[in-house]
Structures are given as C-alpha cells and as structure tokens.
Nucleic acid binder design. Sequence first.
DNA 1: AATTTAAACTGCACTGTGTAGTTTACTTTA
DNA 2: TAAAGTAAACTACACAGTGCAGTTTAAATT
Lengths: 203, 203
Amino acid sequence: MAEQKKTRSVIKREAIITGALAAFQQYGVADSSMDKIAELAQVSKRTVYNHFESKEVLVAEIITSEWEKRTVVYDALYDANKDIKSQLTALVANEVELMCDSAMMELVRVAMAHFLFAPDTLQHQMAKMFEQETALQRWLKLAMADGKLKTLDVNFAHDQIKGLLKSRAFWPQLLRQQEPLTANEKTELVDMTVGMFLSYYQA
Amino acid sequence: MAEQKKTRSVIKREAIITGALAAFQQYGVADSSMDKIAELAQVSKRTVYNHFESKEVLVAEIITSEWEKRTVVYDALYDANKDIKSQLTALVANEVELMCDSAMMELVRVAMAHFLFAPDTLQHQMAKMFEQETALQRWLKLAMADGKLKTLDVNFAHDQIKGLLKSRAFWPQLLRQQEPLTANEKTELVDMTVGMFLSYYQA
DNA sequence: AATTTAAACTGCACTGTGTAGTTTACTTTA
DNA sequence: TAAAGTAAACTACACAGTGCAGTTTAAATT
C-alpha cells in the first residue's frame, strides 16, 4: 500500500469528511453547522472552506462519495450447473448483509432526510444513487433465460424480493423502530424469502 | 350537518393548518418559517402564535391529527364461508389504495423528514403512528385460526405482504423516483402479491 | 335598529440567537 | 519561503418568539 505519503492536505480533508459524517449522523444535515463540523474534525473552519467551497458542495460530495464507496459489486453470476435454490440463497443473503450494514443505513438516513425536500436538481442526484443494476437482477435474467424460472418481469420480481427483505431488515431499522436483525433472524428471513419466491416462480 | 356556525377562531385555525401543511409539503418542516406559514395562511403571525404556542407544538399537532384523520379503519372481518383468495384480494387492494393516496404520501414524507433525526421523545411519537393493527393483520389471524393458512408468524406474514406492496407502490413514489401507479398496475400488483402469498401459505 | 362589549385578529417593531461565509493577522510545515 | 493551516472576530441575514396599539367581528343588550 502507498498510504504513508499522505500530504497534510489529504489528512485534513479526511478529517473533515469524518467529522462531517459524524455530525450528519448525529444531528442530520440541516442541524450540522459548519462550526460544529470543523470542531468535530479538529480543524479550523477556514480549512473546511479551503477544501469545500460551500456547505452544499461539502454535503453533496460526501454523500455521493460515501455512497459509491459502499455499493461494491458482488458478482456471483448464474451457474447453470448449480442448483437454483442455493445460488439464490447466497445472492439474497448478500443483499441482506448490504442493507443491514449500519454505516450504509446511517448514510441512507442522512441522504433521505436531505433529499426528501430538495429541489429537482438534487433529486436527480439521488435518483442516480438508486438506479444501479444489482447482481441479483443480472442473475434473475440469466436464470430465466435458462428456463429455470417462469417467464417474469425481471424488475418486478427483483422489487418483490427487495420488498420482502427491506420490510423486515431495512425500513424498521432506518426509522429506529426495530433493532438490527440478529444472524439467526437474517438467515430465517433469507430462507423464507427464497422459499416464497421460488414457490411461485420456479419453473 | 351543523357546519354553518364556524366561529372566526375556527376558520383561522383551519387556515393556519392548511397553510402550514402546504408549506411543509413544499419546503419540508425545517424550511418552513412561521412567517412563511402565516403568509400562506393569510393570517397574521401573531394569530399563529395565539393558536399554537410554538412551532414544535404546531408541527406535532398538525402531523398527528392529519395522520389520525387518514388512518381510517377498514373493517372487513374474516368470513369462513367466502373463499380465501377473494377476501384477501379485497383487503390487499384496500391496503394499496391507502398507501397510494397522495395526501397520505405527502404526510409521510413530511413526517419522515421531520422525525428522522428527532430526539428520542419525538421518535416515540412517530413510533405510535406506525404501531396500529391493520384489518389485514386481524384477518390473517382469523384465517389461520380457521386452518385455511399454514401456521405462520402473523407479523412476519403481514410484513411480507406490506413489503411486496410498498416496494412498488409506496417507496419509489415517496422518493419521487416513480409516478403513482395506474389502476391497472395496482390490480396487477394486488394479484401478483396475493398469488405469491397464497402459493406459499395456503393450507 | 342602534349600541355596547369582549374576544379574536392585525401589523409592526423589536429582542435574541444561530448560522453561512469572510477577513485578518499569525503560525506551521514541507 | 511559499503554501496551507489556525484562531478569532466580524458581517449580514434569517428565524423564533414577544409586546402592544389599534381594528374587526359577532353576538348580547338596549
């Protein structure tokens, strides 16, 4: 790794981002002043403005870059020789892990609160964050092409799976109405979801 | 109807609520100043404060009262003599109508943005808004007791149905990524949901 | 029908506070 | 020594909330 040669500028920048994220997660974007952010980052306010020309720029940059950092692509492609159920189970388990990740959840919370009433220009930015083909979608297409699933609308089916998962593993936690799922609850959720999906869709 | 005798006070109060709701829906709670609300309501700011002692009180009162107004109870109880599928279809169709309602959606948008980073005390208020047994839950219990459905965790099953519906009819619209569903799309969604649910749970 | 009364509303000036963003004079670091 | 950071004061503004003198409204009284 070439991580030793961090210039002071880079160090400060990272501190700002860390501090801003912490502030956003604790107070939300609207209630995080630039002074608070600078203080949390252990950096002078002027330095914040040297790195980010305005609060809006800082917010946008942090949210999108953190988002990209966290949407890593898990690419287990469809394998015609392996059994459908176990493949789907692995994929779905992966989706659950992604959506349960607490850093991810906090980021979504920040982004949602910030974008819900944002002007159109910012809404587009949010839209881009969401429209991103998942490994699950690719797999569904291939499995269907291979005749292992009933003919189906891939997007519809994908939303069904996501809906089944999120209603238990994501939304209640995002709204802080429910504790994060335990490992057991996760596997149960995955099994039930795959079971229900295949009971309807398996060819 | 005894609606003619509205005192001036009542008229003003209603104007304030209407104005505040309009402001909230357009700008969000945080960016709706009391001046803006008074202006939209065509009422002096002082009058707003005569009716609501602070902004927080105004927000809380409006959100909860509007919520209660909109969560009307549809009570179609389980009927052992009628066929399972048609009963469930009616109930699910009702749920979809409720969650698609644009006034409801706007209210949820306002409430979410407002409560997402609120202190614990306010979070409890939100929690109460959500924990409310639906006709669907009651029906599932009775249908299961009657042996028409496999033994199941009622809450889990309920969340599954809600998840299947919301991932297509609610969340994308809330985030303004998707237009509201057409009538056809709604019935298709209802049919697919009931179909999938029963394919797994019907005894 | 004219007058009185009390409650509610208005408009406006004013206080206090919090915040984005700027500026300045000084210090550190590569 | 030049670029980057620091600390603190400062500007300009928006907002929540208050106080008050004067006006409107509707109903009760004459």
